[in-house]
């Protein structure tokens, strides 16, 4: 896949999008569909936050360039051309991440990778909002995953064993 043109520095107004954009970069090779929808979420949310100041407009315009380039590159992928298929793809991926981390948790295996999986699952559930309102189940999973990631991270940082 051709490399995307880099984005300008992230405007401070868009700080809340930095994790979703980083997740997009991390998935460019691993799962381009997930990477595409993470950017779409950042684009849509960024436009709601600030599409007026020149710095933000410039950033959003470059992000849109990336999205258009990706859509062209992935044009034969149904998960890109049909959002209903894309939604199922992102949801399955988020659930897989969640279940991996949850299994590790229940087996008492606490490590950085499982913390990241919990957190990434929560970010991808944010991404699902581009397709419409979240289900109650997704909202519960997001809350639980974010709480678990923070809790286990703090335990490991303080040398404590998570309960």
């Amino acid at each position: 896949m051709a490399a995307l043109a880099p984005l300008p520095p992230l405007p401070p107004q868009f700080k809340s999008l930095q994790h979703h954009l980083r997740t997009a970069q991390e998935h460019d090779k691993r799962d381009p569909v997930v990477a595409y929808y993470c950017r779409l979420y950042a684009m849509q949310t960024g436009m709601k936050i600030d599409s007026k100041t020149p710095e933000c407009r410039k950033f959003l315009s470059k992000l849109m360039d990336q999205l258009e380039a990706l859509k062209k590159q992935l044009g034969d992928n149904e998960a890109i051309t049909q959002e209903i298929v894309g939604c199922a793809h992102v949801e399955n991926y988020a659930l897989k991440m969640f279940l991996y981390a949850d299994n590790e948790d229940r087996a008492g295996r606490f490590h950085k990778n499982m913390i990241k999986s919990f957190y990434t699952a929560s970010l991808l559930i944010d991404v699902l909002t581009v397709f419409g309102e979240l289900t109650d189940e997704n909202m519960k999973h997001r809350k639980y995953a974010r709480w678990k990631a923070t809790y286990i991270h703090n335990c490991l940082k303080n040398g404590e064993t998570p309960q």
Partner: peptide, 26 residues
Amino acid sequence: TGSVATVASAEQDELSQRLARLRDQV
């Protein structure tokens, strides 16, 4: 300032239109 606001608004519309096209909503 009126014309600056007009340019900003037009650019905003352009972004909205590109987003709608991207999502096949036009």
